[in-house]
């Protein structure tokens, strides 16, 4: 009996070890991906001018950059890079905190949505079964249930989705219509994260639109950062401390 118990324990340890070996690469890849995205996710904003590019980006996704100086050869700007770094650090820390909160809220919301979806499907199936004559194993009921699901799904996805269904069969090598076995690819769905926030979010009123941007501190000058106007210290001015630096570059 003792031998059997010990045998079971050792076997369990080995199985757990093997499972961990299998899971580690995927977990590591996911973590790396999240870390990369978090460092780069708040780069867009302003008036939308720097958007609308799918193949050409101002950032090489494999490299990180930081602003250091102006591009003008006639005007040096020793403090701009340092100051901007302070801006960025403060801004990123604040945004990261918000993002963490958002992730938690999103997880709750997704769970709620999943539950609601399941309840809806159950209701539809039950209703369709009743239409089919009330029999619990009615094939007519199942068919009607499937039809109802199709209608609901089409409504949920929008009327644009009805068109492809009416057309002839898609090309053979169409991963969207006939996804391969491994679709979606590994790491495909970093977003949406688990859970979308419950509504309304707690800090809904905390957001101040860009129109309410703070006036720049004394001695700051406007510069283009990409396509957006931001404020940084004038050449020769002392770089402000992290506490006195504004939370984010001013935007119109």
């Amino acid at each position: 009996m003792k031998v059997r118990t010990r045998f079971a324990s050792v076997a369990a340890i080995l199985i757990v070890t093997g499972t961990a070996l299998v899971c580690v690469p995927a977990a590591q890849a996911q973590w790396d991906r999240q870390r990369f995205n978090e460092s780069d996710r708040f780069r867009r904003g302003g008036d939308g001018f720097d958007r609308g590019n799918f193949g050409h980006s101002r950032f090489d996704e494999s490299r990180r950059r930081e602003p250091t100086s102006t591009s003008s050869s006639s005007q040096t700007h020793p403090n701009a890079g340092k100051d901007y770094q302070a801006y960025t650090q403060n801004k990123n820390a604040e945004q990261q905190a918000r993002y963490n909160e958002m992730n938690t809220l999103q997880e709750n919301q997704e769970n709620t949505e999943k539950q609601m979806h399941n309840e809806t499907m159950n209701t539809i199936n039950n209703t369709a079964g009743d239409w089919g004559g009330g029999s619990s194993d009615s094939s007519t009921g199942e068919a009607l249930g499937a039809a109802a699901l199709g209608v609901v799904g089409g409504m949920a996805l929008g009327s644009m989705m009805n068109k492809p269904q009416q057309q002839s069969a898609p090309p053979a090598q169409n991963p969207y219509a006939a996804p391969p076995a491994y679709y979606p690819p590994p790491g495909y769905g970093a977003y949406p994260p688990a859970g979308y926030p419950a509504y309304p979010p707690p800090n809904y009123g905390a957001y101040r639109p860009p129109a309410y941007a703070e006036a720049p501190p004394p001695g700051y000058q406007p510069y283009y950062n990409g396509s957006q106007v931001v404020y940084a210290p004038a050449p020769g001015a002392a770089a402000p401390s992290a506490a006195s630096a504004p939370g984010a570059p001013s935007q119109p």
Partner: peptide, 27 residues
Amino acid sequence: QGLTMPLSDLAFSNPCVRPRKIAIYSG
């Protein structure tokens, strides 16, 4: 300058090069 302009993908002499390079799925 970190400057991109909207829909600038269409301005390249061969707009396909970059999207083809980064695409992992298409349909």
